[in-house]
Design a binder for these strands. Sequence first.
DNA 1: TTTGTCGCTTGTCAATCGAATAATTTTGAG
DNA 2: CTCAAAATTATTCGATTGACAAGCGACAAA
Lengths: 216, 216
Amino acid sequence: MVRDDSKSENAASAKSRGTARSKKREETSARIVHAARQSFAKRGFHGTSTRDIASVAGTNQGLITYHFGTKDVLWRAAADNLFEEIGERLFDRLTQRQSADERENARESIREFVRFSADYPEFFWLMVDEGKNADDRLNWLISTHLRPRFETLSDYMLNALGYAREDLPHVYYTLAGAAGLIFAVAPECRQLTGIDPLKKETVERHADFVARLIIA
Amino acid sequence: MVRDDSKSENAASAKSRGTARSKKREETSARIVHAARQSFAKRGFHGTSTRDIASVAGTNQGLITYHFGTKDVLWRAAADNLFEEIGERLFDRLTQRQSADERENARESIREFVRFSADYPEFFWLMVDEGKNADDRLNWLISTHLRPRFETLSDYMLNALGYAREDLPHVYYTLAGAAGLIFAVAPECRQLTGIDPLKKETVERHADFVARLIIA
DNA sequence: TTTGTCGCTTGTCAATCGAATAATTTTGAG
DNA sequence: CTCAAAATTATTCGATTGACAAGCGACAAA
């Protein structure tokens, strides 16, 4: 049975807030969400079974139904969790950046974005996995997370980097693709080129490469 | 029952070569492979069922087992088919290109690669879908198709574009990502930015944008 | 201590998966 | 025309899927 929605959103009702029970509930729920994030990222929505996720989380499949109701809801929770971390990691740094040299400032922002792409290949996988099919998950993803993120970045590219408005889509997807692909296909890159893209020096090299490319 | 391997590879035994029977066999097989290419590209290996493929091909699932034996073999056949087309479409144009202006020559090569990425988003999907997991399919994909393709492009980037050897992986994945992502997530791009990346003018605009970026 | 709620486990369900086999139709050599 | 082989369809199988429901033990309010 699916639990009450009021608890579903706040992870605690008015009565049970802060108790040992609700604390355990949140812990378990978080563990499942974390496992779901890994699994969905690596195998995609269709390629991931709720039993796999449960196994990674160290529990059973029934518990997923109990906490989230459906696989779709769990996927949304995993996406929420990912974008929450992304917001903390990326946007705070980008928007708060300050420097004397405007050009070097922009370049460092791009480097930071490349480092972020190396730390969170999940974002790239999610983007490609869901972005190619116009379904409910894409609609939800755009309206909930992608749209505000894109608006923020657009303002930044428009004002700080001085791009024209009609170039924004090209800037956005060019940068995202250039920064993220090499990390998203790390196993392939390792086997094909012999270098490990996730090694610290390689990440920095790629960051510098892309930054110099975009801000010539 | 799986058909004889000698026919599996050549699509015709010595006796039946050129007959109406072997012709129909090849036609049917090609129809299934074509349907498999579409389905695998859109949904990935795990997200695609052999029944879906059969439905797209206008037949039933048993015929797939008859012609290819396993889903894995069909996937390889679909990949073979894709890379065959890619070879014809891309590499022939790139290597045969000749111009007086070396710089403009390189720029046009990149434009051509972007146009290719728009025509074949399947390549990007396949790359990301299979490149993130080090399994048998990735091993096969690299040794069979990706390695020779990468070598060819490496020579080109080394000689014609004058890049340093240790930068090759960065150039390769940066270009592939910058050129391909916007087309790979076309539905997302449409909904997020309002522009259709697959429209002819948009493709040309992106080609020009990326070309000017790489060859400044 | 009682009692009922809560977090969780277990078992089950219909649907669907890839694969194999049986049954049927089509084809072409003799 | 005959008939065996080939191509196609139909059926079946065991395994796995997401979802559901019954029941368990621990905990907390009364």
